[in-house]
Design a protein around this nucleic acid. Structure first.
Lengths: 373, 373
DNA sequence: TGCAACAATGTACGCGTGTACATTATGGGC
DNA sequence: GCCCATAATGTACACGCGTACATTGTTGCA
């Protein structure tokens, strides 16, 4: 009995209800005037047959997939979902998509094929797309530019491209870097090391900018010697521990800003192994306010970034723009005006959410450190 | 120029190549004998027009979506992606799906609609489905049973249902609970509290079983007073801190097994606030070996669970079974034989991956505790 | 009574693809 | 030169649904 239910379509419902297929479709979609009696007949027939519309056919007929694509970068050996950063953004996206009746289509980029994103849209698998963890490379920029020119709706999260009109939801990382550095300065640090991440991420560059601004504001000269480059992994923080421990002992460094909490935590653990205790011997502050920042000893000061909200807003904006009738891909015809429009959009295209300083014990510096026993 | 490219289909390619649409289809799918010359003509035309097949139409014609569904439970106020448990499993699923050419369709269950899963398959949105975080309730069991009866391919992860033939990938949590408790016993504990999670999860019950076995093995009587119930959140661990701190001081408790690391970490922090230091005043061990277990002070002993591999295996088995020609939903016709087959399957239907004890400082107990300064 | 307006429904086709079947070339053995 | 097996291609339709347009039924009003 159950076996046949797999293959019932609109036709069976129509037959049972004694109406045409079109009427069934109209009833189920609430389109056009329908006599109440007919409506009930159809609904009863559908219920009785346990009819469920074939979404694939609907998608083809409507030329909309109802899927929100999420592009995940390929990062070797990194379990992307497990990083605080992606997990939080994804949670925000997922919740919003669910609320708006969209499904999430996760598209992990494969390491080999450097295909352009346009294919993705041409296949119609997704109606819109959110780009996570994209890097500022020439190819990436070109691929996105093409996407934008063809009018496909997409949104970058936490990565902006200068001089491009791409819609972007990010956080104010210049401010964040400044907050972090200023915090250490106000706690008495003068020789502040900065452990940054790769420059292909705009947020790395922004934090660097903020760090510089803070130093400048307090008349502290930027010392290239104090700049370290990691890759946002805990290991890459850990590996600088020896070097920094020595610098701290020699008085060359009295404070450290790390560009994310993973590196900060790795560094913190390494420093302790070298007998240097952040919060006592030097001030340390991380970035992201990941959950782990509250687990360390001492607890890690950080800068909170509203990742969840960024995911929410990206999804919300994208799905709103799909429903808005304003979406006109015809702009490409008129050539130059499109250019101009792009420039106008640029003004509002980047949304920058505020970040927040979260001071904890790791950025204390003097013997008034409140440790236990 | 770019604008028109959005609407090219097989027809345009066929016209340009001077062949029929069927030939285009055959060339692109590598079906049937094709003259080399024709093949090149078609491929050249496709390239020239920048043709990309419409996946929606392919899905409809092939009656396969190419999507692997992942059901996420609705847990109020919890950002699912951000929990170690889900994140790791999802990473494993995602990586495997990518390798097998499938996309991941994330389906977060909404709080209200308690729809049956069969709808999901009937809509054809997914070819197979992985269930995460399902609970052992009567409705859930019934919904899954229906799914199984109708022959839809699905797989549970980290949750089994007794007496059901559902395919399941989980870990040996009985062993895990036993390992944890035995570890504490061997380190000298005799009054071991157990902070467990809700019983709707089979892994909670399994760990409890393992805990009991360990006590029994060492002739320690199980004391109901020492059983605590949390909900796997850090907060729910934290809230028992006062109670347990007192019990430890009074000598009522000398060791604690927590059913996951989140609760263990919350508890650890709470205990320290009450002046009780795990690893010195009492032994504490968590479960999952989440990343955060290495961040705490002292570092948290735990039981490592191969979540990533569980995700991999679930996806692998599911996608393999789709490609295998053995898949015959006709079994329902013959009635009882299906029952028998189910019983046979049951023997292999539950795959239980091994877990591993990870001893760290939190489960030490005596003054030989190796703290710093 | 006749006619217009509108409600309610049916018919027919498009969406873009896969593929069974029919048809036409091609070659080899006699 | 003929016939058959097979290669190569075209034709036609199905997949299941949305919807424009045609058709029929109903009502109100002159």
């Amino acid at each position: 009995m159950k076996a046949e239910e797999c293959i019932i379509s609109r036709r069976e419902v129509a037959k049972l209800a004694g109406v045409s297929e079109a009427t069934v479709s109209r009833v189920l979609n609430g389109v056009g005037p329908i006599r109440e009696e007919t409506k009930l007949k159809v609904l009863e027939a559908a219920r009785q047959l346990n009819y469920v519309p074939n979404v694939l056919a609907q998608q083809l007929a409507r030329r909309r997939s109802g899927n929100l694509g999420v592009i995940l970068p390929y990062v070797p050996k990194v379990k992307l979902f497990s990083t605080y950063y992606f997990a939080e953004i994804l949670s925000g996206i997922g919740e919003t998509a669910r609320r708006m009746g969209y499904d999430l289509l996760i598209i992990p980029l494969s390491p080999v094929e450097a295909r352009s994103y346009t294919n993705l849209f041409q296949t119609q698998k997704v109606d819109a797309c959110i780009m996570l963890g994209s890097q500022d490379s020439a190819e990436e920029r070109e691929a996105l530019r093409q996407l934008h020119e063809e009018g496909y709706p997409f949104c970058l999260v936490n990565q902006h491209f200068d001089d491009e009109p791409f819609k972007t939801i990010e956080a104010d990382h210049v401010k964040g870097g400044q907050l972090a550095a200023t915090h250490l300065i106000e706690r008495g640090c003068r020789r502040i090391a900065f452990l940054n991440g790769p420059n292909v991420y705009s947020n790395s560059r922004d934090r660097m900018k903020g760090y510089s601004l803070a130093l400048q504001e307090y008349g502290i000269e930027l010392d290239e010697q104090l700049l370290y480059l990691g890759n946002y992994s805990r290991k890459s923080g850990y590996q600088y521990a020896g070097q920094l421990a020595e610098a701290i002992r020699e008085g060359q460094v009295d404070g450290i800003v790390a560009a994310n909490d993973r590196m900060a935590i790795g560094l913190l653990q390494g420093l302790r192994e070298h007998g240097v205790k952040p919060g006592r011997d030097a001030a340390l502050i991380g970035y992201d306010d990941a959950e782990g920042a509250r687990f360390t000893e001492p607890q890690l000061s950080s800068v909170a970034v509203p990742f969840y909200e960024m995911g929410e807003q990206a999804a919300q904006w994208l799905l709103d723009s799909l429903h808005a009738p304003s979406f006109q891909p015809d702009a490409a015809d008129s050539g130059e005006p499109a250019e101009h429009q792009g420039a106008k959009d640029a003004a509002q295209s980047v949304v920058r959410l505020p970040v927040r300083l979260v001071p904890r014990a790791s950025s204390l510096r003097y013997p008034n450190w409140q440790g236990d026993s």
